[in-house]
Amino acid sequence: MIRGLYTSGWSMLANSKQMDVVSNNLANVNTTAFKKDTLILESFPDMLVRRINDSRSASNPSGRLGNVQLGNDVGEVFTYYTQGQLQKTDNNLDMAISNCDTAFFTVAVPGGNEEYTEYYTRDGSFALNAYGQLVTKEGYLVMGQNGVITLNSENFSVSDDGTIIQDGEAVARLLIRNFTDTTTLRKVGSNLVQRTENTQEQPFDGVVRQGYLEQSNVNSINEMINMITIMRSYEANQKILQAQDGTLEKAVNEIGVVR
């Protein structure tokens, strides 16, 4: 009976974490190039149950009753890096990566001691700062293969491989990282991801589209259905927990009472 309380309680906690993930997906349904997350649950190890000090049964001398499960918990948060739909904006500073789900723009995020850390994003809604440098909406520097990209105006073109052409000359080329396995990447907020020690690169084989922005890959209808399913599961576990609690209360307060 106590085990049942823990099982229902853990399931309710897992449902709460699922709801947080789904809510975050819905909150970012209109965020440029946002990648949706999903929660992967894993069960606790099965426990072998047996009768204590009872091996006299001829049919079951070991006293084993079988295995029982103690519920589940969060295993990991998995991110889907599938490409979202491309929206035409006709803005020269807007860029999107097409035909390659594993490629990212490279940005430099300032840290302490005037150092910069390399992060990656699919959000190509760029701008020019006061120094003519190509930056993200948050002001992070967009990196080229030769360093910071500096332009003298918004009048430029971008070829399929990320080469930036201005005044008839190739002035820079976007530094695009293409990774072999996106499951090794980690989200860090602000629509950015970072690599881990297991992350490996491969040549970029996609296309850079100027004047387009990648939309979020979140399907709002599916996320609403997931939210309803999670709510129903939470309510079911809540009712089971209350029923077990009521049974336990009777066992403690009524069974064995001398009248």
Rank of each mutant, 00 (worst) to 15 (best):
M1R: 12
I2A: 00
I2K: 00
Y6P: 00
Y6H: 01
G9P: 00
Q18S: 07
V21H: 13
V22T: 13
S23Y: 14
A27P: 05
N28W: 11
V29G: 02
T31K: 11
T32Y: 10
T32H: 10
A33K: 08
F34W: 09
K35S: 07
K35Q: 07
K35D: 06
K36Y: 14
T38K: 14
T38N: 14
I40L: 09
E42V: 01
F44R: 03
M47W: 05
V49H: 14
R50L: 06
N53H: 08
N53A: 08
D54I: 11
A58S: 06
S62I: 08
G66E: 14
N67L: 11
V68P: 00
Q69E: 10
L70M: 08
N72H: 09
D73G: 00
D73C: 00
G75M: 02
V77A: 04
F78I: 04
T79C: 11
T82H: 15
L86K: 03
N92H: 07
L93F: 07
M95W: 03
I97N: 02
N99M: 10
C100T: 15
D101E: 15
A108T: 06
G111C: 10
G112N: 14
G112W: 05
E115L: 15
E115W: 10
E118Y: 11
E118A: 08
Y119H: 06
D123P: 01
A127N: 15
L128I: 04
L128W: 05
N129S: 11
Y131K: 15
Y131E: 11
Q133P: 01
V135C: 00
K137A: 14
K137Y: 09
K137W: 06
G139Y: 11
L141T: 12
G144S: 09
N146V: 08
V148H: 09
T150K: 04
E154D: 03
F156D: 02
V158K: 01
S159P: 07
D161K: 15
G162E: 10
Q166V: 06
Q166L: 03
G168T: 04
E169D: 12
A170C: 10
L174F: 01
R177I: 03
R177L: 02
R177F: 02
N178Q: 14
F179Q: 03
F179R: 07
T180H: 01
D181F: 04
D181T: 06
T182Y: 04
T182R: 12
L185G: 08
G189M: 09
G189D: 13
V193W: 04
T196K: 08
T199W: 05
Q200N: 05
E201L: 07
F204N: 02
F204S: 03
F204A: 04
V207Q: 12
R209M: 09
Q210D: 12
E214L: 06
S216V: 09
N217L: 03
V218Y: 09
V218G: 08
N219R: 11
S220T: 15
N222Y: 14
N226W: 10
I230E: 11
R232I: 00
R232P: 00
S233V: 02
Y234Q: 01
E235A: 07
N237A: 00
K239C: 01
I240R: 06
I240K: 02
L241Q: 05
A243C: 12
A243I: 09
Q244C: 04
D245W: 01
L248W: 05
K250C: 12
A251F: 10
V252Y: 07
I255Y: 13
V257L: 09
V258K: 10
